[in-house]
Amino acid sequence: MALRPIDNALTTTPERPKKQAKLSIPIQTQKKPSDFGVNEEKKASPLPPPPPPPADASVDYISSEKLKPFEDPESKIQGLVEGLESKDWVKVCESLNDVRRFSLHHSTVLLPILEKVMLILVKAMNNPRSALCKTSIMAASDIFNGFGEKLLDFTDSGVFDRLLLQLLLKASQDKKFVCEEADKSLKSMVNTIAPLPLLNKLSGYVNHGNLRVRAKAAVSISNSVSKMGVDEIKEFGLVKLLQMATGSLNDRLPEAREAARSIVFSVYKAFTENEAENPVEAWQSFCQSSLSPIQAQSIIKAVGSQ
């Protein structure tokens, strides 16, 4: 039997050619001269744009002494209310300054529309924009100086009561420049309105829920009482004034307590003016017969500490 050659018994498969590995060569980019020495991972970020100027920068707070009269007030008054009701707050501030000029120099021209102007002014005091709030308070001060007791004639709308409340609230704020301006306005009110009718307006705020409002009301009452003579104090009522003061004698705020002591001492001087013999004893007897025991004790103690 013939044997096959071994070479033909096994079949061989040809080897596949090996692929050559691809070499990745990093391409170096040429840096700009300005990039040398800069850490690319921590390049400085661009500076933020400058903040816009404050919104109140375009409003000037003009003192009353620098407000000049109008050349033609009759013509200027025609567009006053429209300016006050503008949606542009800067325009409203300008119109409020016009109200100030009318109040100081042309009060008779402003008087026919004063009640409406005051209603808009009170609304402006509630505006969250501080410039508008402060300008409206400044306008209130000049209205007091220009019209005084005439403001009490607007009883139907209650605009004076609303204005008084807003001034007490603004004087109680944390914003110092608003608070200081409201304090000035309250002083203008006390200086231009007779004590008797003003005390009737202020008496309702000595028991206000806000302790700061109570304190500001007590200060205004004290300032008003300090202007009164003996006859006026007796006309308003010694007991009524003492009752107004007793609540503030033990108040939490020193401002309220000091104002209350001032009121009590003014009443004491008015009562003892004609008491030649034993004025202290007569005073104590008066307090004990006119007030509750707790109130009388507080009043007598307050006078004794003076």
Rank of each mutant, 00 (worst) to 15 (best):
L242F: 00
P17L: 15
T13P: 06
E235H: 09
I294R: 12
T135E: 15
S58P: 04
I120M: 11
V81P: 01
Y268L: 02
E82Q: 14
T12K: 03
L121P: 03
S188D: 11
F177C: 01
P48Q: 14
V38S: 10
A217Y: 05
G237Q: 12
G37T: 06
K227C: 07
G146K: 11
F236R: 10
E82S: 07
I193K: 01
S103K: 02
L238Q: 13
S58I: 13
L211E: 11
E181C: 11
L110A: 01
R257W: 03
H106Y: 10
S262N: 12
A282W: 04
Q166S: 13
L151C: 07
K301Y: 03
C133S: 15
V90M: 05
N39D: 15
V280H: 05
T272H: 00
T135L: 01
K150T: 12
L196G: 03
K22G: 10
P293A: 00
L84Y: 00
K234S: 10
S34H: 13
A276W: 12
N274I: 03
S45Y: 11
V38Q: 14
Q20M: 09
K123S: 01
M1I: 04
Q173W: 05
S75G: 11
I6C: 00
L165P: 06
I137V: 11
K18Q: 11
A276E: 15
I77A: 06
F144P: 07
V230A: 13
R261G: 00
Q297G: 05
V90Y: 09
G83F: 11
E82R: 12
A296S: 08
L111R: 15
E255H: 02
C93M: 06
L119N: 09
G204S: 13
S141H: 13
D156C: 04
S75H: 09
S103H: 07
K32Y: 09
L249Y: 04
Q295I: 02
T29S: 07
G247D: 02
C133H: 14
G158P: 05
E181P: 06
E71F: 03
S289E: 14
N145S: 10
L211N: 05
M244H: 06
E232G: 02
S298W: 08
R100N: 04
V264S: 10
Y205N: 02
S107D: 13
S95D: 05
N250R: 13
Q297H: 06
K87M: 08
L96F: 14
A259S: 13
I263G: 05
L241K: 13
S248I: 03
K87Y: 00
D231Y: 01
D174I: 00
K269W: 00
F265G: 04
